[in-house]
């Protein structure tokens, strides 16, 4: 068989760890021969019960589970994993027999991500598993509101650019007075702001073309974008002018006319908050200056403090070289 010379799927940013729960040696031999151990390392368990503790203590990147395990059904294991929010994102591939396919499965109650059916087709099994892993890296980390890549992808992206010693500008954006908006108007109105901000950043960055551009959503009102150092200042200016023009539409017209929110806190003190603004801090990696993701974020955080001193929208560029 020996397909393990094949190139790994491009979304494998690092070696993937997989658990196979099956006592079927044919299945085991097939899967183990398909990828080099450099790309997917399988740990095989021939019983289900014993594997559960391992799964929970040190969850792999992929779980392949045979529905014909001697001690517990594969579907049961799958549900055990999927019912816990901590493990939910772990992709599970269920291995079935042709006879299992007589009646339609209720995939709402068996929450797996894909399945394989005996007799296997090698190439189909290979691609279903590759796809499951890719799909999981896409879905796992996406911000649930904006669907932008989240923290894990952001860190991986930055670190891989640093490792390649590629020049880039890394911008951290957040909103001033978002919390007071949320407090006054409620979370769903706050979510409207977050969706709008994501669109403004994404479309502005896209409008510069450029292949390596990237936008991520760290969470809450924190966003990140990566682009060419040459264009980044203009991008900041465009994001700010667009955001400032659009955001008043999200306030009630009375507050918009006032140009601020007036609210009373729990102590009965009346407080005023300006219309939201966007602050952007930009760090440059030029000629391999940065070595680690942590440096980039530390510089950005100190710059952001500076940007925050200004209540209006503004950007600060890291001019150190």
């Amino acid at each position: 068989m020996g397909m393990n010379t094949a190139e790994p799927a491009s979304c494998f940013v690092r070696k993937q760890r997989a658990f196979l729960l099956s006592d079927d040696s044919e299945l085991r031999d097939m899967l183990l021969s398909m990828w080099s151990r450099e790309w997917i390392e399988f740990t095989v368990f021939d019983r289900g019960r014993g594997a559960i503790e391992y799964l929970f203590n040190d969850p792999p990147d992929l779980l392949v589970v045979d529905n014909r395990l001697p001690d517990i059904s594969g579907a049961e294991i799958a549900n055990l994993v999927k019912s816990e929010n901590v493990y939910r994102q772990l992709p599970v591939v269920l291995v079935l027999d042709h006879d299992d396919m007589g009646e339609p499965w209720d995939w709402g109650s068996v929450e797996v991500d894909d399945f394989l059916v005996r007799p296997f087709s090698d190439s189909e099994a290979r691609d279903r598993i590759n796809l499951s892993l890719c799909r999981a890296t896409r879905a796992m980390d996406a911000n649930p509101l904006t669907k932008l890549p989240g923290n894990t992808s952001i860190i991986q992206k930055i670190q891989s650019l640093i490792d390649k010693e590629q020049d880039f500008a890394l911008a951290y954006c957040d909103l001033d007075y978002f919390k007071s908006f949320n407090d006054k108007y409620g979370f769903s109105r706050g979510d409207e702001i977050l969706m709008m901000t994501a669109r403004v950043i994404v479309n502005t960055i896209k409008s510069f073309g450029g292949k390596g551009n990237f936008v991520g959503h760290v969470g809450g009102d924190d966003y990140v974008f990566i682009m060419s150092p040459d264009d980044v200042e203009q991008a900041c200016q465009r994001i700010i002018s667009t955001f400032d023009a659009i955001v008043p539409n999200f306030y009630d017209s009375s507050d918009r006319k006032l140009g601020k929110i007036v609210s009373t806190d729990r102590q009965g003190t009346v407080r005023e908050f300006p219309i939201m603004a966007v602050s952007i801090a930009v760090v440059f990696n030029i000629d391999g200056r940065l070595e680690h993701f942590g440096e980039a974020s530390a510089i950005a955080m100190s710059l952001k403090k500076k940007a925050k001193e200004n209540p209006k929208s503004c950007y600060v560029l890291d001019r150190r070289s």
Binding site: V202, N203, S207, I246
Partner: peptide
């Protein structure tokens, strides 16, 4: 604004 938010 609509065009900016929708994108090209």
């Amino acid at each position: 604004h609509g065009l900016v938010l929708l994108g090209f």
